[in-house]
């Protein structure tokens, strides 16, 4: 499907800094700059993937958009309206239209709850329809995600990992959201089941026009599911581009490193991986200038002092690098 061009969601300079406190008075001694000035937009029916190493701020970005952690700065516009200006009713409607699916189907669902109650919960909270209508909707949703409606009375712990992820997706779909944040929705699943869930997500997008903000560290999954890809490094987006472009011609040296590190999947085209240690700096002690300069093969003097801005290149690609 060709995504519509007016952005549904626009994020500008999003910032989430967690205070580091210490001492008897718990005075703030520093900050973890988990998300440090992130900007992107998301179209209707589009999938944007956030990729990057552990701790680069992918989940925190998703949680901030869901209102589950408080941003310390930046602006978010939804459907042309500034979230900050939302009154309570508008905020409630925003929360209905944004849903999230988490990585771990085992910990994100209450094992002692019946499936129908899990899927119904958002309908109850937002008082949608009569009890009978909610019942019908639950059956419809179960069918939609490939669960048998006659299992509605079963408990979450009676389901396999893949089935639990289907339950989580049904719950996220209950209120007909416009955007679903998928935080590593398949990384806890076996390949064969992972493929089932990826197909489901892809079918749902085609049929319902839902947008995904997908968080994943598996480049295979990213290549399958995305229209566009944003690469994050230490709280910043260092490259954002259409999927086909970024896989064919990665712009940022860090994107290149990620792609070079992914296994080849062809035993005749093995990479010669280097055994050299190359440890990731932490979000608490960010390098000066370009955050990637401690690992970058193209580093020059300017990289150590001046942070490069994200600038537009050909083909809708944006790259933050002095030398690229």
């Amino acid at each position: 499907m060709q995504p519509d061009r007016t952005p549904l969601l626009t994020v500008e300079n999003l910032e989430v800094h967690f205070p580091i406190r210490s001492g008897v008075f718990q005075r703030q001694v520093g900050a973890v700059k988990a998300v440090d000035g992130v900007s992107f937009s998301l179209q209707r029916g589009e999938t944007l993937s956030l990729v990057g190493e552990s701790g680069c701020g992918k989940s925190t970005t998703g949680l901030a958009l869901m209102g589950l952690v408080k941003p310390t700065g930046g602006r978010v516009q939804f459907d042309g309206q500034e979230i900050r200006g939302f009154n309570r009713a508008a905020l409630k409607s925003y929360r209905r239209r944004m849903q999230i699916v988490f990585q771990d189907p085992f910990s994100s669902l209450n094992p002692r709850q019946r499936v129908k109650d899990i899927i119904r919960a958002p309908l109850d909270i937002h008082k949608v329809g009569t009890p009978a209508e909610r019942e019908t909707r639950v059956a419809e949703l179960m069918e939609r995600v490939g669960l048998r409606p006659d299992q509605a009375d079963n408990f979450a712990h009676q389901f396999s990992g893949g089935q639990r992820q289907r339950i989580g997706i049904a719950r996220a779909l209950a209120l007909n959201p416009d955007v679903i944040v998928c935080d590593e929705p398949v990384s806890a699943l076996d390949v064969s089941v992972q493929a089932q869930i990826l197909n489901l997500l892809s079918d749902l997008q085609r049929d319902l026009g839902v947008s995904y903000l997908s968080i994943s560290h598996d480049l295979g999954v990213v290549e399958f599911i995305s229209h566009r890809v944003a690469v994050m490094y230490l709280g910043k987006i260092v490259e954002i581009a259409p999927k086909t472009r970024i896989f064919a011609e990665p712009g940022h040296p860090y994107t290149e490193l990620l792609m070079r590190s992914a296994p080849s999947r062809d035993p005749r085209k093995r990479h010669s991986f280097s055994a050299t240690n190359d440890d990731i700096p932490s979000a608490t002690k960010k390098p000066s200038g370009c955050p990637f300069h401690t690992r970058c093969p193209l580093v020059t003097a300017v990289c150590k002092t001046t942070e490069p801005a994200l600038t537009a290149r050909e083909g809708g690609q944006m790259v933050a690098c002095h030398n690229r």
Partner: peptide, 21 residues
């Protein structure tokens, strides 16, 4: 079933999954 194993996929493509568990 491994995504990204073949040629670059188009959004909307389906993977060859194995049914069941």
């Amino acid at each position: 079933a491994v995504p990204g194993a073949g040629a670059s996929s188009e959004a909307g493509d389906r993977l060859a999954d194995i049914p069941g568990t």
